[in-house]
Amino acid sequence: MMEALSELPLNAEPARDDAVIEVSGLRMNYGPREVLNGVGFSVGAGEVIALLGPNGAGKTTTIEILEGFRGRSAGQVRVLGQDPAQGGEAWRARIGVVLQSWRDHGRWRVRELLRHLGRYYEPYRAPYPTDELIEAVGLTEHAGKRVNRLSGGQRRRLDVAIGIVGRPELLFLDEPTAGFDPQARRDFHDLVHRLSDLDSTTILLTTHDLDEAEKLAARILILSGGRIVADGSPDQLARGVSRDAQVRWSRDGELFVHATEDATRFVQGLFAQYGDAIEDLEVRRATLEDTYMAIVRKEER
């Protein structure tokens, strides 16, 4: 497995003309402590990227640098063609941010707040129509409520609405579905796909929910020890950890398990030999969680 891990896709994306985010040699020190050590990656227009990593890996620092909220010690960073450290109001109007929580709008009513925030974007771009946005995040029945009367899940939906009210070209999502019930989570996933597919919004997502990352992101970046240690699709990363698929089946009440690189050919052979006697067939590859844990443990060692 160690040999396979060394072959994981790393910064595999070539330089591209449509890059929305370009990072090269990014370093960040807090006094003597080095948090980021030569981080580099690029994100193309319309991509949905998940940035994963253990606590303390540097995810929040990286995102804050990209958003222009934090300086850096060294390296080149361009977001929407601009150095975030020098980004002005017109540049910021092209970016949406959904933080883990907002705490300063309690007395506003939902519809009034979103309409008010939308006005700030009008000099630069047309914001989402307020009622359309409220419907998109599932708050239609609560549009007249004060924010401090919303439940935790409803408040989180409002956080998402605040982040996308200005129709951002680039959207940063920090643990966006924390506190969501299963239906709200599914609705949010549909919204992310809509933003990416229909509006060509580029999305950079940070989450500890690996199932969510696998459902939303076409590409995964894993940050560990202050650097990007893996970069690729969930399937690419899984194959880097193990090229074998695990095939499980039962026959005459007996359970069988077999590992193979060519699951399709193996299953065809099973049915050719045993036909309808094959039951409970399952083909399983390493999940994103399996892959993530293998990569992080290797880096920690």
Rank of each mutant, 00 (worst) to 15 (best):
M1Y: 03
M2Q: 12
A4Q: 09
S6K: 12
P9M: 00
E13N: 10
R16Q: 13
D17R: 13
D18A: 12
D18T: 12
S24T: 11
G25H: 09
L26R: 14
R27K: 10
N29E: 05
N29W: 11
V35M: 14
L36C: 06
G46L: 09
A50T: 02
L51I: 11
P54R: 04
G56S: 08
A57G: 05
G58D: 06
K59Y: 04
K59P: 06
K59S: 07
T62D: 12
T62K: 13
I63C: 07
I63H: 08
E64N: 15
E64Q: 15
I65K: 11
G68L: 05
R72I: 15
R72C: 11
S73W: 00
S73K: 00
D83S: 09
G87P: 02
A90F: 03
W91K: 10
I95L: 15
D104C: 04
H105T: 10
W108V: 01
E112H: 15
L114F: 09
Y121A: 04
E122H: 07
R125G: 14
P129K: 04
E135H: 07
A136G: 05
E141G: 15
A143H: 06
K145T: 02
G153P: 09
Q154H: 07
R157Y: 14
R157M: 13
L158F: 00
D159G: 13
D159T: 04
V160F: 01
V165M: 07
V165Y: 06
G166S: 10
R167W: 06
E169M: 09
A178S: 15
P182I: 01
Q183D: 12
H189A: 15
V192L: 09
D199H: 12
T201I: 08
T201P: 02
T201L: 07
H208R: 08
A213I: 04
K215M: 14
L221P: 08
I222W: 02
S224F: 00
I228Q: 01
D231Y: 15
G232I: 06
P234G: 08
Q236W: 03
G240F: 07
R243N: 00
A245T: 04
W249M: 02
E254S: 05
L255C: 02
A259S: 05
E261K: 03
Q268S: 09
G269F: 05
Q273E: 15
Y274E: 10
E279F: 02
D280V: 00
E282N: 04
V283A: 06
R284E: 14
T287K: 02
T287W: 04
Y292H: 03
I295S: 11
R297H: 11
R301S: 12
